[in-house]
Design a binder for these strands. Structure first.
Length: 490
RNA sequence: CGGGGCAUGGCGCAGCCCGGCUAGCGCACCUGCUUUGGGAGCAGGGGGUCGCAGGUUCGAAUCCUGCUGCCCCGACCA
């Protein structure tokens, strides 16, 4: 077991924090609730961004950037939207500081009060729809398919690195369409994009569905979501895609002339994923030896550790290491040769293992003689001595295998922790053990709220895949059209 | 905002109850030598005035008052 790492069993949340901080992903900053994302963590986020950005562009979207500040009045234009976010907004009220008259430090200059306060964006629907009004006149201007990479601020009471921070990084797509159907298709398409990203890149199996009215995004008509199951049995919302109907178009008067020369309101969607995905990544694959990063997202896929006893050997082994590095890079593998002379091999083994590098190669004098290299996999911790020939092909296949294995492990875990429950007694018992619970619900917000009050479980989603089965609500016994997924959530 | 806890080198802590010489330990850091196939050993060394502001006292990390910050649990949330 790794030094100074709590185990998942002893203290899951401490284990999570240990991994994030000790693997150098992020740390708490001097600013309450705000984190510093460190280079290694940011490198993983950049890889996520890169993959997502390409998927967005492949589906016809373009990037743009809107202001960090939103005039307060914009917020009140969409009633349910303001209600959803009002309690967690940072507000800018002044624009100048001055020296304290009593000589100590600096104070807000009360004479420099803003005419209208500015809200630090918790999400950008309002400023974007206010802007879209001027961009859209005709059906020829539609669809408008735009994404923004940005930071947003939500003044949370309690924060946790990546999972919930006062400021976080994300992308938010905001699209405008001429028909209801087209907007719904867009929202559903982006949900599929998110699910594909989660599964293909993050090796994170997700359920797809829609939210109940209670859990719906403030201002949305329908909220689609992907949900993943973490190793402690709690659910994590990994991404959302909203069909906004004409709510924002009406609030911000965004109308267009149709082919039939009729003035109509635009149909909207918005969709986003955030640095929270980093938290999902950690909690899905990592173990008591540290972080595990899937090969497709790993900033370093293969690390080479030289073994030597003297300067002569150091040189020979590093030369070989550089040669291997070149070979691997030629087929697109990201490689680091750890030629630091200041740390011992054992130290390096543990360090890279803790940082979750998928594959480690160790080369020593023995290997130079035999034409071999020692390979160690992070996912299984297995070691094997490989012959050098075709090493790049062997590693390409190995990385693919590791990616698949991580997904399969996560999927097996989810399967083993997914249950069907038909009675209230069973439900109460199972919810304590964690996992996804498929159960019948009568479809009312009241019942959902009562279940939440009594068990802390929420409806994570109403599935949109698989066969539907009628039944009776576990709480009220009333008729139910289909099972929904309950869990305790982050 | 309700309940609990903590503030002492970069990190983790001891000392406080019962005030008293130069504030101590582990890790990390620096130098040297020996080491290097799973977190090296030895020797030497640098770094803190004890969250802030008052008070009590000959004397305060230690006692008293006020303030501030942080962490954990709850309600809220991507």
């Amino acid at each position: 077991m790794a030094k100074e790492l709590s185990s998942r069993e002893d203290n899951y949340s401490q284990w999570y924090t240990d991994i994030v901080t000790k693997a150098n992903l992020a740390e708490n900053s001097a600013v309450r609730g705000c984190m510093v994302i460190k280079p290694y963590g940011y490198a993983i986020w950049e890889r996520m961004q890169g993959a997502l950005d390409k998927m967005f562009k492949d589906t016809g979207h373009e990037n743009a950037y809107f202001p960090l500040f939103i005039p307060k009045s914009f917020f009140s234009k969409e009633a349910s939207h303001v209600e959803g976010f009002a309690k967690e907004c940072a507000v800018v009220t002044h624009y100048r500081l001055k020296n304290d008259e009593n000589g100590k430090g600096i104070v807000v200059d009360e004479t420099a009060k803003l005419e209208e306060e500015l809200i630090v964006r918790p999400t950008s629907e309002t400023i974007i729809w206010d802007t879209y009004r001027n961009w859209i006149q005709s059906y020829r201007d539609l669809p408008l398919l735009i994404n923004q990479w940005a930071n947003v601020v939500r003044w949370e009471m309690r924060t946790r690195l990546f999972l919930r921070t006062a400021e976080f990084l994300w992308q938010e797509g905001h699209t405008a369409h001429s028909t209801r159907q087209e907007a719904i298709e867009e929202a559903e398409q982006m949900l599929r994009v998110y699910a594909e990203f989660a599964e293909e890149w993050m090796a994170l199996p997700v359920l797809k569905g829609v939210k109940s009215a209670n859990e719906r995004f403030a201002g949305a008509v329908e909220t689609y979501c992907i949900e993943a199951l973490m190793q402690d049995g709690k659910a994590l919302q990994a991404g959302t895609s909203h069909f906004l109907g004409q709510n924002f178009a009406k609030a911000f008067e965004v109308q267009f002339l149709s082919k039939e020369n009729k003035l109509e309101y635009v149909w909207a969607t918005s969709w986003g994923v955030s640095t929270r995905l980093m938290g999902a990544l950690v909690m899905t694959h990592s173990d008591d030896n540290g972080l595990v990063v899937p090969p497709k997202l790993a900033p370093i896929q293969v690390v080479i550790v030289p073994i030597y006893r003297n300067d002569e050997q150091y040189k020979a082994v590093c030369d070989k290491g550089r040669e291997i590095k070149k070979q691997l890079e030629a087929v697109g593998i990201r490689v680091k040769l750890d030629d630091r002379d200041t740390q011992k091999p054992g130290f390096k083994f543990n360090e890279w293992e803790f940082k979750g590098v998928p594959v480690r190669l160790a080369i020593g004098p023995r290997d130079l003689e035999n034409g071999t290299v020692e390979m160690a996999r992070r996912d299984t911790l297995e070691k094997e001595v490989l012959q050098m020939q075709d090493i790049e092909q062997k590693l390409l296949h190995l990385l693919e295998k590791i990616q698949k294995n991580l997904y399969q492990k996560a999927l097996d875990f989810r399967t083993a922790n997914t249950f069907k429950v038909d009675t209230w007694a069973e439900f109460i018992e199972q919810i304590e053990k964690g996992g996804f619970i498929y159960a019948h619900w009568d479809g009312t917000a009241e019942t959902e709220q009562k279940i939440k009050d009594e068990t802390k479980a929420t409806i994570r989603l109403i599935p949109i895949e698989g066969e539907k089965e009628e039944g009776k609500c576990i709480f009220t016994g009333n008729a139910s059209e289909q099972r929904v997924v309950f869990a305790r959530a982050y």
